[in-house]
Every structure is written in structure tokens, then in C-alpha cells.
């Protein structure tokens, strides 16, 4: 049977992709952030997961607002990155796990989540930056990926509770899959940040740290927030925290924090990195 071995949270800011391309990981601006990843590399090396389910939001590569799905799940054999317009280098294609994708989608619709199933899906920096962070040097060739895109671009966006429950349903679906697979769940994006408006540059460290504490063993205490609350408390792009809650929802076993790092600023954000074991 497939087994969820843990969850990882990570920022997916494009500037990180550029820093990796320029080999700037040890420069003063970047060091504290990149130093949060070696313990995750060691864990991935030791655990050898087969599949990564990646919660992210598309930023106008695959989807435009002509048709904007609230939840879109990849069910492709391969995912390609493409030009996003402002110069981040594209990465080599990523393998998918079609059969597990469909298994998850079948269960989600049965559980009344009206998802969009994508047999073609270009993945943007929301997926590619975390892949580069987890598996440096594009060393993800052995991995199969299932991208899960949640709308964080256009209001209305799905609530924290809804995203947690989506994750819960996915967790149950994954653990009922017959093949012996080790699955890791990535919750990307966040934490507090605001790119647009006169309040640009707003970061709420206290709130971010509280979220990192509670997501380990009291995630239900984070589910009462509305999207508006997150905008108000964590900035216009603060709602990206719903991807973390999707990840946490999928961890249906006993969860233990193995590692964390938090650094301000990376670009305009508070960047939170966590490694959670699921047993």
C-alpha cells in the first residue's frame, strides 16, 4: 500500500530560483534561508520517497482568469515548465504518476470536491522552485510528481478549512492506493507577504511563527480563519497558507516536527521551511 511518510513546507518565490541559477546560496542575503534545507535533503536521501504531491498556486502560466479552477489536479505522465515572462530559467520536465492521480481524483469527487482534472498542465515556479530546493541540480528524475493547484489569485478563494479537508480526503485516497509507494506531501508558498498596494512589503512574523507552531499538532486551531482574515493578518498573498493546510490535512497519521527554519526577508516574504514526519 502507498504510505505518506511526511510533509514539507517551503517558499516558492521566483527569486529563489534565480539565486540557485546564479549559485548565490552562500551569499549573506541567501545563506540563512538556504541553510534550512540540508536537513531536508538528508531526510529525503534516507527515506527515498517515490512520489511528491505538491500543493501550489499557479501564477498565470497554465491558467488565466478566463477559466480559473479553484482546485486543479495534474493527471499527466509528464509536466513541463515554460517561460513565465520575466526571466526565470525553465527546468527539465518532471514525471507524473497518472494512475495515482486518477485514484486521488476519483476519491475526491466521491467526497464531493469538484476538482478540475488536468491531463496537460504546465507547471510554474510554484512547483519548480520547491523541486529545485528539495532535489538540487535537477536531481528529481527518480521522482514522480502530482501537482495540486489551488486558486490564490482571484477572489473568492477556498477557505483554510476547505483546503485542509481537501488534503484530508487526498491523504485517505493515497493511503488506500495498492502500490507500495512512499509519498511525501509538499505545501508551498507563503508565509505572510504583500506584493501589491500601498501596504506592499507587509510581513507578520508573529502570525507566521504561531502558524508554524500550530500546524504541527493543533492545525484545527487554524481552520477558523477566513481568506479575508488571512489577507488582513498576513498580507494580500497571505492566503497562500491554504497550501500548507492542504499538505497538513493529508498527514493522517501521527505527526512529529523534525526540522524548521524561518527567515525574513526573502524577496517580500517571511519564508517558512518545515519538515513533518507522518507515522
Amino acid at each position: 500500500m502507498a504510505r505518506i511518510i511526511g510533509g514539507i513546507t517551503s517558499s516558492h518565490i521566483p527569486a529563489i530560483g534565480n539565486a540557485i541559477e546564479r549559485n548565490q546560496q552562500q551569499e549573506p542575503y541567501w545563506k540563512d534561508f538556504f541553510d534550512g534545507y540540508p536537513p531536508i535533503h538528508a531526510w529525503l536521501e534516507q527515506q527515498q520517497p517515490d512520489v511528491a504531491v505538491i500543493f501550489y498556486n499557479d501564477h498565470g502560466l497554465e491558467f488565466f482568469i478566463d477559466k480559473k479552477p479553484t482546485f486543479a489536479i495534474g493527471a499527466a505522465t509528464q509536466y513541463n515548465n515554460a517561460d513565465e515572462g520575466w526571466g526565470i530559467k525553465t527546468i527539465p520536465p518532471v514525471n507524473g504518476h497518472e494512475d495515482l492521480s486518477w485514484h486521488i481524483c476519483n476519491q475526491l469527487v466521491d467526497d464531493e470536491f469538484d476538482i478540475t482534472i488536468c491531463q496537460e498542465m504546465r507547471i510554474d515556479h510554484g512547483v519548480t522552485v520547491p523541486l529545485q530546493l528539495m532535489w538540487p541540480g535537477y536531481s528529481y528524475g527518480h521522482m514522480k510528481v502530482i501537482p495540486v493547484a489551488i486558486n490564490c489569485e482571484q477572489h473568492p478563494m477556498p477557505s483554510p478549512k476547505r483546503c485542509f479537508n481537501l488534503g484530508r480526503s487526498m491523504g485517505k485516497a493515497i493511503e488506500s492506493y495498492e502500490e507500495d509507494l512512499k509519498v511525501v506531501i509538499l505545501g508551498t508558498g507563503g508565509m505572510s507577504h504583500q506584493l501589491d498596494g500601498e501596504r506592499a512589503g507587509f510581513i507578520n512574523k508573529e502570525f507566521d511563527l504561531m502558524c508554524m507552531d500550530k500546524i504541527v499538532d493543533r492545525p484545527e486551531e487554524l481552520l477558523h480563519y477566513s481568506i479575508r482574515d488571512l489577507v488582513e493578518i498576513a498580507g494580500a498573498q497571505g492566503p497562500e497558507f491554504i497550501m500548507w493546510l492542504g499538505m497538513r490535512g493529508a498527514l493522517i497519521g501521527k505527526v512529529k516536527e523534525l526540522h524548521r527554519n524561518y527567515h525574513i526577508p526573502i524577496s517580500n516574504t517571511g519564508a517558512g521551511t518545515m519538515l513533518l514526519e507522518n507515522k
Partner: peptide, 21 residues
């Protein structure tokens, strides 16, 4: 304008998020 699409416009001009911030 949505910031995610405007990012493509300002990015093309060579501006980053701190510049537009």
C-alpha cells in the same frame, strides 16, 4: 490589474518586487 499579471509586465521591464514595492 492583478499583481500576478502585472508582474509579467514589470518583470519584462527589468523591475523586481522590491522595485515595484
Amino acid at each position: 490589474g492583478s499583481i500576478y499579471y502585472l508582474a509579467k509586465f514589470v518583470g519584462m521591464l527589468g523591475l523586481n518586487m522590491q522595485d515595484i514595492g
